[in-house]
C-alpha cells in the first residue's frame, strides 16, 4: 500500500468530520477518496478494469445511502435545489453547465492520448481440459486418473523422494528459464513473454488444480490448448516431445513439493 496516499485521504475525511460537512459533500468525498485509494493507494497498481468495477459498486452504494431515508434525501437534495434555483448561484450554475461537456471532452482527449497498446483480452487462465489425452501412445484419463507415483508418498517414502528429486532435475534443466528459480514466474526469459508464465507459488494456481490437469498442460503445452484459451497466446512448449511420461509426473511431484502445496484431490461423486 502507498501509505502516504491513504493518510492523505484519511486527513481529508478528518477535516470534513471536523467541519461537520453536509451529507452531499461527504458523498462526493467518499467517491473521490475511494477512487484515489484504488487508483494510487496500491504499490502494485490495480488495473483500470477492476477500478471501474469497484467504482461502479461504490457509486451504487453511495446513492443507496444518501437516499435511504427521508432525512438523508432531504439533506442531499436541499443544497442541489438551492444551487439550481437561487439567482446568486446563476454564474456558478452556468459554469457547471459548461464544465460538464468540457470535462467529457477532456476525458475523451486523455483517453485518446494513451500510448498504443495491444487490446485487452479476457484471457482464460485455466481452460477446460479434455477428458482423455494420448501421450507417447498411452491414453491418460484426466477425469478418473491421478499421478501414479503420488501414493508412494505413504507406501514407499524413499522411492517417492527419488521421484521428487528426478522432478527437481527435470525442472531445473527445462522449466527454470521461464518459471524461475523459486517458481514465481521470474525466469530469465520472462521479459520476452506475453502473457508471462504461471506463478506456481501463488496459492490460487496449482493448488486448485488436479495433477492430471498439470500433466495435460505440460505434455501438450500451448499447441494443445483448446480454442477458448487461444492456443497462440502462450509460449509453453509441448513437453511430450522432449520428456518421458515418468519425467512429467515427477516434475509435477516436484512443483507441489517445492511450493508446499498439494494437488486438488479427486472428489467422490455422491453414492446413489
Amino acid at each position: 500500500m502507498n501509505i502516504l496516499v491513504v493518510l492523505a485521504v484519511a486527513a481529508v475525511f478528518a477535516l470534513l468530520r471536523f467541519r461537520r460537512a453536509n451529507l452531499l459533500v461527504w458523498a462526493g468525498a467518499w467517491w473521490v477518496g475511494l477512487y484515489v485509494i484504488f487508483r494510487f493507494g496500491f504499490s502494485a497498481p490495480i488495473p483500470s478494469s477492476v477500478v471501474s468495477l469497484y467504482m461502479g459498486i461504490v457509486s451504487i452504494a453511495i446513492l443507496a445511502y444518501v437516499s435511504s431515508s427521508e432525512e438523508r434525501r432531504e439533506e442531499v437534495s436541499r443544497p442541489l435545489v438551492r444551487f439550481m434555483t437561487e439567482t446568486r448561484y446563476a454564474a456558478l450554475l452556468g459554469a457547471t453547465v459548461v464544465a460538464i461537456p468540457a470535462l467529457a471532452a477532456a476525458n475523451v482527449y486523455v483517453q485518446m492520448n494513451v500510448p498504443l497498446e495491444p487490446p485487452l483480452f479476457p484471457r482464460t487462465v485455466h481452460p477446460a481440459s479434455p477428458t482423455e489425452i494420448t501421450v507417447h501412445d498411452k491414453k491418460i484419463d484426466l477425469d478418473a486418473g491421478e499421478n501414479p507415483y503420488l501414493e508412494l508418498a505413504i507406501s514407499h517414502p524413499e522411492e517417492f523422494r527419488k521421484h521428487v528429486e528426478n522432478g527437481r532435475r527435470v525442472y531445473y534443466q527445462n522449466c527454470v528459464f521461464c518459471h524461475g528459480d523459486n517458481m514465481t514466474a521470474n525466469g530469465m526469459f520472462v521479459h520476452g513473454l506475453d502473457p508471462i508464465p504461471t506463478n506456481f507459488a501463488d496459492q490460487g494456481a496449482i493448488s486448485i488444480l488436479r495433477d492430471t490437469y498439470l500433466f495435460w498442460r505440460i505434455s501438450k503445452g500451448g499447441p494443445g490448448l483448446p480454442e477458448e484459451a487461444a492456443p497462440w497466446d502462450t509460449a509453453m512448449p509441448a513437453w511430450e516431445k522432449f520428456l518421458k511420461e515418468e519425467e512429467i509426473w515427477d516434475a509435477i511431484l516436484f512443483l507441489y513439493d517445492f511450493t508446499g502445496q498439494k494437488p486438488r484431490a479427486k472428489e467422490e461423486v455422491h453414492t446413489q
Binding site: A44, V50, A185, I196
Partner: peptide, 26 residues
C-alpha cells in the same frame, strides 16, 4: 466481483507482476 485473472493491458500485467494482483489476487 473481483476476478481471479484480471482483464489488464500488458503494461498493467507487468506492473502487477503477473496476471493476478499481489493483493487482490487473494
Amino acid at each position: 466481483a473481483t476476478p481471479r485473472s484480471i482483464i489488464a493491458t500488458v503494461a498493467e500485467i507487468r506492473a502487477m507482476g503477473g496476471s493476478s494482483h499481489p493483493i487482490l489476487g487473494f
